[in-house]
Write a protein that binds this DNA or RNA. Sequence first.
DNA 1: TTCAATGTTGATAGAGTCTTGATGTTTTAT
DNA 2: ATAAAACATCAAGACTCTATCAACATTGAA
Lengths: 222, 222
Amino acid sequence: MANILAIDDDAAILRLIKKMLEMKNHTVTTIQDIKDITIAEINKHHLLLLDVMMPGEDGFDICTKIRPLIHIPIIFMTAKSDESSIIKGLSIGGDDYIIKPFSIHEVNARIEAHLRREARPKREAASAFIDNNIFIDLEAKKVIFQGQEITLTKIQYKICELLALHKGKVFSKEGIYEAVYSMDSDSQISTVVEHIRVIRKKFAQYNLSPINTVWGVGYIWE
Amino acid sequence: MANILAIDDDAAILRLIKKMLEMKNHTVTTIQDIKDITIAEINKHHLLLLDVMMPGEDGFDICTKIRPLIHIPIIFMTAKSDESSIIKGLSIGGDDYIIKPFSIHEVNARIEAHLRREARPKREAASAFIDNNIFIDLEAKKVIFQGQEITLTKIQYKICELLALHKGKVFSKEGIYEAVYSMDSDSQISTVVEHIRVIRKKFAQYNLSPINTVWGVGYIWE
DNA sequence: TTCAATGTTGATAGAGTCTTGATGTTTTAT
DNA sequence: ATAAAACATCAAGACTCTATCAACATTGAA
């Protein structure tokens, strides 16, 4: 039983979806215009059904725009059945793509699959992959790029793990220091700067530069 | 670049899948019999492609059995295209269902979507809001337009946040100064004017001009 | 204990940001 | 129409934060 948000310009389709999903005991909010809802409100739902062909801003545009801020699955529902549209939809951040006219049962099965997956506890993965590109082996405490290990020292690895597992979040030097060092240690903050430099140097050997500087704030992995 | 496991009884199909995904820089392990691999080994991969029709235990049986122990996405790949099979596959724990013969590009797009989703950090709803299609992420302290960040410096961002959060309200230069600067700083008011100019310039690159001048009073976001 | 690897520090160069004043432009009031 | 006031623009340089490097300290393994 989830809160599902459906956005479509066609009121009849919205009614159908709503009726159908409410029969499965979901709560459904329907919206005809994206402007009627805020990002925060979207995130309060568990899943977003998004029509593609709408007057003005279409579903692809909306997805591109909101995806970085939305943390729920986005499922496109559209009559556009050509392969390039499917690929586009999935590429810009869609989690699934359902073609109209759709089978009520399949839609429901797909929604259930997505909801189940959201609920699935993220076990402590032995390896996390960042950007589909850099692997971080949390057990072995290693960073691997294209099958090759980028050898890091303990502190260097810890900093990388912290930043990489929270990619997109800015960490201040102080924040990094506190996360990586034990309470009682009292080095100067500038050691963090030095570690960052060495880490960057090592990554640069592989033409990687994942750590960016946010001026006056700190460092960010992106 | 992920470690992908493909299970199918047909060696030819496995070769095809392997070749295709390796072209996309994934690492692919192929298995013809589920008995050749352990649960722990499966979990070391990032995604499982599972054939349905196999002699002995079929894909559905396997999925049912291992799903509670497997934490990676499972994608069925099968020629069984009838609705009830799709629904069954998704119901018993499959995360997606691809029908043979498949489009290489669509398979890849779906795999990418699943991998991206695994990498997606589970975050609280970001406290962000929209205005004129401009997103302001109060947590990340970023301004985003059409998925792209408009890079602002610290002070520039603060001014934008102040104005945008109170859109429709006019702020005097003095008001902006006091809101953005710390007590003890004593710059001239004209620096605010300069900041506004640079902010406008940055927004103008995207054909945006959210900040208007109210003569003799101050600035307003609308 | 010794040596090599790693971690820390401070000095300095470098890059990014902020501020200022001079100057040009637009608006308002007379 | 003109002057005064408010705002916009620009470039220079002051300022702040970051990157780099080399020297020194510490740790850990042989």
